[in-house]
């Protein structure tokens, strides 16, 4: 995640949408896009957002609209490296479990503390991205050491076969 982290916010409630956008904009120089439904968000998925804040109840105003879970599934399928944070007015554990099952990074219940939680989720995602980068670096380092060790073994076998080194201690 870079300084210009791309964030999508999807909510059919204009007030929630504006409040979260204003709050996140005040945090950092994020590039934020807002959508009032999942279909519009998915149409822009080629922008590969780093984080999507996604409302669970997206079919309140339009009953034909995709619901949050459907959008979550498509987001994870089409943009697997992006993280999704679900927002919901319901503090039901089964809803939270469902969203996590489909790959959501976090689940936030709407209310006064939701904005602080959203901020914390962004911070945690930064930490996760750093851990992933570090893990990638150590993986490459481990492979490089493995290859170097293998080359050493091959060299020793080669030198031994040519009689240039022996098992006996001391100088040849």
């Amino acid at each position: 995640m870079s300084k210009n982290t791309l964030i999508f916010i999807v909510d059919d409630d204009p007030m929630q949408l504006d409040m979260l956008k204003d709050h996140l904009s005040a945090m950092s120089n994020f590039n934020i896009y807002t959508f009032s439904n999942g279909e519009e968000c998915l149409a822009q998925i080629d922008k590969a957002p780093d984080i999507v804040f996604l409302d669970y109840n997206l079919s309140n105003k339009n009953t034909n609209a995709m619901d949050g879970l459907e959008v979550l599934r498509e987001l994870k399928e089409k943009n697997p490296n992006g993280e999704v944070v679900m927002l919901s007015g319901q503090d039901k554990i089964e809803v939270a479990v469902d969203t996590m099952k489909y790959g959501a990074f976090d689940y936030i219940v709407k209310g006064e503390s939701a904005f602080y939680r959203a901020e914390k989720a962004v911070f945690n995602l930064y930490k996760l991205a750093k851990l992933k980068r570090d893990a990638g670096f150590y993986r490459i380092l481990t492979i490089a050491f493995g290859v170097a060790l293998l080359l050493m073994i091959i060299l020793v076998i080669y030198l031994k076969s040519k009689g240039l080194i022996s098992d006996r201690a001391g100088w040849i």
């Binding site: 409630d13 007030m15 929630q16 409040m19 079919s59 309140n60 105003k61 007015g89 209310g111």
Partner: peptide, 13 residues
């Protein structure tokens, strides 16, 4: 239910 749900969070604000 959905109309009440929409008003619920924002009335808290």
């Amino acid at each position: 239910k959905t109309a009440a749900h929409t008003l619920k969070s924002i009335s808290g604000y």
